[in-house]
């Protein structure tokens, strides 16, 4: 296998890319060797050397503790618990949460054999019992596994003096009732709120 084949093979392992699109991406890189390929290779090498998992929250960053955990402008008393780093990024994109995070690294799953000891749950309990945290927001996905994990964490945190909340479930912004699935409609009805008069 020559170097070009190797690039194609490695690119085809990326999510969203098959062998054909990997070949197209490889050709694109080769045609822009100086402008794109070398800087990309250098950036990947640098990132691979620098990326660390934050020992406090489990976030990915180039410093440990991560920039969110060390940011003095963020509210350390509110911790938002998410399944994956991608969920943290999604919440950061929204820009409406100014607290800190805790990344579980997955969810409890009977079928995949994921138990509490495989997730960052013990460190969350430790973090809450250590003081300084007054609210834990459980932002796990609205799936059977996500909610099972949320209930498990709620149970484990019952002894800690923290308020436990979860994200609201229901009609998305711009959503039309006619196009919503039964489950979302059912959750939205359950979580209905009184309108301020």
């Amino acid at each position: 296998m020559n170097e070009i084949d190797q690039v194609i093979q490695l690119l085809s392992r990326l999510p969203g890319l098959g062998p054909r699109s990997a070949r197209r991406a490889a050709l694109h890189l080769i045609n822009r060797r100086e402008g794109l390929m070398r800087p990309l290779a250098a950036a990947l090498t640098q990132a691979a050397d620098a990326i660390a998992i934050c020992e406090i929250c489990g976030n990915l960053d180039t410093v440990d503790p991560c920039s969110i955990c060390t940011d003095p402008r963020r509210d350390g008393a509110t911790v938002c618990v998410v399944e994956q780093v991608a969920d943290l990024w999604a919440l950061e994109r929204a820009g409406s949460f100014k607290g800190r995070y805790h990344v579980l690294g997955g969810v409890l799953s009977a079928i995949d054999g994921v138990g509490p000891e495989d997730l960052n749950i013990a460190s969350l309990i430790q973090r809450c019992e250590g003081g300084g945290v007054s609210e834990v927001i459980l932002a796990t996905n609205l799936t059977v596994d996500g909610q099972t994990t949320a209930h498990y964490i709620t149970d484990r945190l019952s002894a800690a003096s923290v308020t436990i909340t979860r994200l609201a479930h229901g009609v998305p912004v711009g959503g039309e009732l006619d196009y919503l699935d039964d489950g979302t409609l059912s959750a939205a009805l359950q979580a209905r709120q009184a309108l301020p008069s």
């Binding site: 609205l142 909610q147 039964d182 059912s186 959750a187």
Partner: peptide, 9 residues
């Protein structure tokens, strides 16, 4: 039927 939705909470 989405039977699991009402049980999630």
């Amino acid at each position: 039927e989405a039977r699991v939705a009402p049980l999630l909470t």
